[in-house]
Design a protein around this nucleic acid. Structure first.
Lengths: 339, 339
DNA sequence: TATATTTGCTTAATCGATTAAGCAAATATA
DNA sequence: TATATTTGCTTAATCGATTAAGCAAATATA
């Protein structure tokens, strides 16, 4: 069934004995079309179940009303929630989003960008893969003349709008919280400094220690990929230290969970012997025992503001892009692992 | 920068003093174009950084090479992995995917379908929201003349291809496993019977009990929404029974985790006193203690086969759709909670 | 009443890529 | 050598929707 052709403006025009141009204008409530004609057009459009051909209008107008989104993965609560809110804002403005996953791979990220540019998106919103160091594929987006917006994971060098949380400040909040609980030797299992957000977390951690007159001990500052396995391995290393830390701030919930497993296995009492703080507020942090203190990243706001930033660009003709950071404050969620 | 217009076929044609038609054919390696011309065209195309205008070719060819995908949520490991594999297969065949989330909402699902149809997708791949009972919006897809493929959560009534795991058989495997471990009173915290997959799991559970000559006890069969909270509440109810079960088969990992929390809080030894099995192989099942025995759903295969099924439809001109189920066997992953 | 303005449409071109039809030159075959 | 076929392109139409330009009729203004 249903192999009949789609209804076009021309079909409506023929039925009403007017020109397709008049039909197009009537559908868009042009002031130069009589109310009578408009009503007739809309009635017939409904009768024939007219669906505008988006491709044709996009081609003519030079806008596809599609926005490409690149995320490392969708299966984290953070990204999934960002996407949901981003989509809702963009849909209201008549844009649809094409979601792609880089799986933290540089190569996949390059491919995704090619794909999105090929699909003629009106803009790209991206959060960088961990692997990515070379930024030339992102420059390609800019030289294509469409807006590029980064969120959560960006790079200053790109000189585009960025929306994220205040990583530097988050580390302060975490350290202050642990100091308040009486901790004096706070370790940090962090990401690699070359990634902006992890560098900021490390800087925040160091500066917060200084502010509280605590000594900086390089053996307590660890860089890793922050997987669950990394968390396990680094926690084991920390436990072997002669002078064990009394708190560990881990820059990712997954690594924090790995650390917690090792602590539990070694019968180290959390939070009594060692307090633990993660980052990201992944759902499982509230599910394990003890539940893990962590930082919520305002995914809803990030999604919404990122979308609004794109719309702001899209409404302007000049595509002057510049570094424009919107930094949100993160929120500490205190749970059993640091109480 | 970069406000210069995009390169078109015409630009290449002008530079080489040939017609745009020849350029188009050269780019597509038409056999009627000389090798010399092809080489020249490709060289100039590269020089001018030519990117074909996808909208124009889609309009002309009547194909957008876009596939719409609707999932309840992307933030589960299962859906995220399905999407990843689906995308990879479709990309290779020249299709891009537009991912949308229904958030388990019927209304959002309807909106997503409208959006995708408006975007002129060549087909829709969907997994139904829990809320959905009325199927008329799915019928709309079919009457649009584009293929509809369902996976994981479908309905026989739709009469379209369906790819999923063997829920009925999965329940058998789980029950057999528990019986083997000596369990005699196996409870089932399941989903609502109106959802096909949950109904199948319940039927499988009941039939497997019969097969093993175990009595069917209605107080041990519970229907719920299978959230973590549901798991907690229903486990509490089961613990209040005079005659407690010695095993609980929960039809979702989240609810299984809720059940596990209650068991741990009540100092019930898992697996000694009560064995526990979940469903879905969410990452956290291997992370909690004790780790939860669960069922893996072959997300990779489902993604791949779903994509291939679509491609199969797309390559044919006639859009005869019929109920065609591809059922994969699930795999039991035995962990500490049932050892 | 004569001119200016507004209303309500039509005509024709356009967005780029594609393709059916066709033509001239080159090559193959009788 | 004469005809048939192949090669290598061009011409022109097309996919639908949109829009600048413009025209005739209706209405407003002088």
């Amino acid at each position: 069934m249903a192999n009949k052709k789609r209804t076009t403006l021309k079909d409506i025009a023929n039925k009403l004995n007017i020109s397709p141009a008049a039909v197009s204008k009537a559908m868009h409530d042009d002031s130069r079309i009589s109310i009578k004609t408009k009503e007739a057009v809309k009635r017939v459009a409904k009768e024939l179940n007219y669906q505008p051909n988006h491709l044709a209008s996009a081609l003519r107008k030079g806008k596809s009303h599609l926005v490409g989104v690149i995320v490392p993965r969708t299966n984290s609560n953070f990204f999934s929630s960002v996407l949901e809110n981003m989509e809702s804002v963009l849909n209201k403005a008549g844009y649809n989003i094409i979601i792609t996953q880089s799986n933290e791979s540089f190569e996949k990220e390059c491919k995704n960008i090619d794909t999105l540019l090929f699909t003629q998106v009106d803009g790209i919103i991206a959060s960088m893969a961990n692997e990515t160091v070379d930024l030339s594929h992102y420059e390609k987006i800019k030289s294509n003349g469409i807006p590029l917006i980064m969120f959560d994971r960006g790079e200053n060098d790109l000189n585009v709008d960025y929306i994220g949380i205040n990583d530097y400040e988050s580390s302060h909040i975490i350290v202050e919280h642990l100091v308040e609980k009486g901790c004096k030797r706070i370790a940090h299992i962090g990401g690699y400094r070359r990634t902006r957000i992890f560098n900021n977390r490390i800087r925040g951690y160091v500066d917060a220690l200084k502010k509280n007159n605590l000594p900086i001990d390089d053996s307590l500052i660890i860089e890793s990929s922050l997987t669950l396995e990394d968390g396990r391995r680094e926690m084991e290393r920390l436990l072997e230290l002669k002078d064990r830390p009394d708190a560990v701030y881990v820059a990712s919930d997954y690594a924090a969970l790995g650390a917690l497993q090792v602590l539990n296995e070694n019968k180290v009492n959390v939070p009594k012997d060692i307090r633990l703080v993660g980052f990201g507020n992944e759902p499982f942090t509230s599910l394990v025992s003890p539940s893990i203190t962590t930082v919520a990243q305002h995914s809803k706001d990030i999604g919404r503001i990122t979308a609004e930033t794109f719309l702001n660009h899209a409404s302007k003709d000049d595509i002057k892009q510049s570094l424009n950071k919107i930094i949100l404050d993160a929120e500490l969620i205190v749970r059993d692992s640091s109480k």
